[in-house]
Design a protein around this nucleic acid. Structure first.
Lengths: 175, 175
DNA sequence: GAAATTTATTTTAGACTTAAAACAATATTC
DNA sequence: GAATATTGTTTTAAGTCTAAAATAAATTTC
């Protein structure tokens, strides 16, 4: 690493920094996780706009399709991107409009359609993805290999824990 | 812990699961981080709606104010919540409408105003926060104390790394 | 096999979010 | 101290997002 460092990282005054010693570890952990996630997301969002004049949800949808050569149904997209079905409808509409993805009616289920990249969509995605990867790498440059592996592992545990212990929907009367 | 476990956590089919061994560790780490963050966020969002008929951004704003007895300016709220100024304007308007927060014009800067909790806002927040804490605790119940501390530490490193190595805005011509 | 249920998607209404422009007030520069 | 730049907030236009209702096509049940 031979680049010059930034003069001094501005002391962030975020949600997490506002947490106090009084707060429970669980809460502080959640606030820090959210801060990291928001920070990275914001950076990617800005970079996508400035470099490719596009948005994160659009890039994200293209990325899902790039991993699925046979295309994905609306519901599959919804599950992978963890957003509502209706959201996917609008997003897909816009990308179809831009000519980057196409809808193909499903052969065996007339309710359903498969969304896939058009050649233009594939080309656009391929142009973006190396830079995107570079941004992510850069943001994680301060972590050692071991840090990353450890973090990956712990987040895996967290993910499992959330799945197992998530709040039961509709448990308890509304206040 | 004496409660019964859920039968079997449905095998999630999310963004992160779709990543392959081919992907770089940095990218997989980011996807897993985003998945965890989205999962927790989604749970809190649903719980807030079902239990208190409110939304996460509103709760979040109240939480910021609860930590700041003298109130916060719009800009401070924007920084802490990591959202745009305009966003805070709208959110505050809605919460003022609901009678949960109030705006007080700043004495020394006529551009600025301090936002703070009304008694009703404080009461509403105090009613929500113990349950909120319970949800977070529950979701993290699968992690040991040491896991949490380790995760907290590593996320601290990540946060610092992102701050130091974030993509320079407007570096490189638009494609 | 008709009726009831489930599943896939879209529509709707409204909230949240952003970036950029506009405004207004303060601070800085000469 | 007038001109310029900066800062704090709101407005605007458009996109993203949600939950719930509506549609329509499968699937299951009887």
């Amino acid at each position: 690493m031979s680049e010059l460092r930034q003069p001094a990282p501005a002391p962030a005054n975020d949600r997490e920094t506002a947490a106090t010693r009084d707060d429970k570890l669980e809460l502080r952990l959640w606030l820090r996780l959210l801060t990291c996630s928001s920070l990275i997301e914001q950076n990617v969002r800005t970079a996508l706009r400035e470099r490719f004049d596009t948005t994160l949800p659009r890039f994200d949808l293209l990325a899902q399709l790039d991993r699925a050569p046979d295309g994905l149904t609306m519901s599959e997209l919804s599950a992978r991107m963890m957003v509502s079905n209706g959201n996917i409808t609008g997003l897909t509409d816009r990308l179809v409009e831009e000519g980057l993805v196409k809808r193909t009616p499903s052969a065996r289920d007339r309710r359903s359609s498969h969304v896939s990249l058009t050649p233009a969509g594939k080309k656009a995605f391929d142009a973006m993805t190396p830079e995107h990867e570079g941004w992510i790498d850069a943001m994680m440059a301060g972590l050692s290999r071991q840090d990353m592996q450890q973090l990956f592992l712990l987040l895996g545990k967290l993910k499992q824990s959330v799945h197992q212990n998530a709040v039961e929907p509709n448990k308890g009367e509304k206040v």
